[in-house]
Design a protein around this nucleic acid. Sequence first.
DNA 1: AATCGAGCCAACCGCTGCTCT
DNA 2: TAGAGCAGCGGTTGGCTCGAT
Length: 256
Amino acid sequence: MESWGICDQQGWRKGPWTPEEDKLLVEYVREHGEGRWSCVSKSSGLNRSGKSCRLRWVNYLRPGLKKGHLTPQEEGIIIELHSLWGNKWSTIARYLPGRTDNEIKNYWRTHFKKRKPSHTQEEKRKSHRQKQLQENDKNDNTTKTSPDCQAASVGEKGDQETIDGRVNDNVVVDNHYHHHHHQLLPLMMYQDSSAWCDLIPADNYLWGGLWNLDDQNGCSKMAIQTQVNGADHYPRGGGGDHAVNYIHSGGGGYIF
DNA sequence: AATCGAGCCAACCGCTGCTCT
DNA sequence: TAGAGCAGCGGTTGGCTCGAT
């Protein structure tokens, strides 16, 4: 490995950031706002690449970042969303205000990736989950009003293509979505944390027997009840983040 | 006290997609 | 429409810390 603190071929400094560099970057962003990262070195005096500056800002310096361990609610959200979207860390991060994609990615890799439940545990878990979701689906049907809020049915139609274009046999996506790019959201996003946590059985469901969330295509077979809401933004994979303004970070709610 | 290994996390790299000209 | 430049994403690396031996 190359040593930290040296410069790369373009002359950019690499390695850990110093407090002085942090200060310069914060001042730059305060004056110029986020973006235009390629200009940072010129304007701020930092001898860092725009990429490096952006990463440092996003993952460490940005106001509102939460430090410390993820809460059980956040962990649950990660699990749920990962089962929906796979390794779309930035997309998942949008639903966890104050958490970064890097943080979530690291967390996932260290906590979940290597764990695989036994076959029987997984079968048990799936059937339990299916039951839970069917009950919720029943309850939910009474609350749907607008076409945009129609819930996707769960586990009734066999294999369906997910929003990633992958096949997931339990996540059933309302065809409406494909035409309007409506946002798919897990059920728990509409419930307060205590309520959705009730969906998860206490017995080994999460921590004693984490299921294999890294199965083929990064898409677990866990049944997820989804809803389609009226937001016209859909979190996409790949490049081009779009300002991420649809998360309201206050009060533990997720407003889109 | 020294060594080893696992876990955590910051940061880099390469690639993709968007925007602008 | 094509190409260049930039921003963002996901994968990976490697240093640091801490507990076990």
